[in-house]
Simulated scan of single mutants.
Amino acid sequence: MYVITLLGNVTILCIIKMDFSLHEPMYYFLCMLAMTDLGLSTSIVPRALSIFWFNFREIDFSICLTQLYFIHCFIAIESGILVAMALDRYVAICHPLRHCTILKSATVTKLVLAVVLRGIMIILPFVFLARQWSYCGTNMVPQPYCVHMPVVGLACGDTRASSYYGLFVVFSLSGLDVFFIVVTYIHILKAIFRLPTKDARLKTFKTCISHLCSILVFHIPGLYFSFSGRFDKKKPHPVQVLIAIMYYIMPPMLNPIIYGVMTKQIWGRMLHCFVHKGN
């Protein structure tokens, strides 16, 4: 899965870089999504493989907190990028004649910077709160990587501040992002249904399918994992670990497949490259 993630996302980045016809807001956001997926997967998989392959089971607490920070930061950034992509689809469908003037290069750059800064800042308290707790019991992290609640769960004493802030992040970040995406797609669907012919409606809706698939792959397992980790303690531990691993490493693997297959321009460019090499 990690090899597919690397190959898929690097291929997406190379295709968009080489094809000047793809230098548009949608594909700039897709580049950002690919880089975020590479960062998220690389924050988890190499360390996990070192445990499984070489039995490197110890990790320094500071390194553990660093991994915790980057994992959650990349997740926050990816959530924001999906919102930005929803905005791009909204402008392209609801205001097609003003798409280039609304989403200019400077506007796209500001959106990306805002998404990145939001992710950087909102996750910092995770680290500060986790560092202040006293860890006087077991030091066994229950998963092959460090994330917020499993690490905080090892602390002694009252750690409700970390738990409450984690819930705040879920609602204020993922919750608001999902709400914004839903509202955006309500307007998109209204605009699609106003189109005069069935073929026009279908053709327009097809431009949103890859984005919708990425949203489903990312947000539905994410919300389930966030709440089940806090409230559902009955599942066997190996099942919890498997669900957590799949949540973190499946979206980075599936996103380039989704966009590579469902986006006509990228798929056509990939076929052109392979046919050209074959000749």
Rank of each mutant, 00 (worst) to 15 (best):
I209V: 14
I120S: 05
T11I: 10
G137Q: 06
G8T: 02
W53L: 15
F205V: 05
A161F: 13
L82N: 03
I192T: 04
H211L: 12
M18C: 15
T207N: 06
P142H: 07
P196D: 05
A130F: 03
H148A: 14
K190M: 08
F205R: 07
V112F: 11
I249P: 00
N9I: 01
H272F: 15
I245E: 08
T197M: 02
K234F: 07
S162N: 10
M121L: 15
G157I: 03
I102D: 06
G119V: 05
M270L: 15
Y90I: 01
R160T: 15
A161T: 11
Y248K: 03
L223W: 07
L173Q: 06
F231M: 09
F29C: 08
L65Y: 01
F168Y: 14
S50V: 06
C64A: 14
I71A: 04
I77R: 00
T11K: 03
F70K: 02
N279M: 13
L154M: 13
F225G: 02
V141R: 02
V151D: 01
N55I: 10
E78Q: 12
L173C: 08
Q265D: 14
H272R: 13
F168E: 03
V45L: 09
L167H: 06
R57E: 12
L129E: 11
L65F: 01
A161W: 10
M85R: 09
F274W: 14
I192V: 09
L38M: 04
Y90A: 05
C273W: 08
P46Y: 04
V147P: 00
T5L: 02
D177S: 09
G8R: 00
G222T: 11
I266M: 06
L68D: 07
S210H: 12
L242K: 12
I123M: 12
M1L: 13
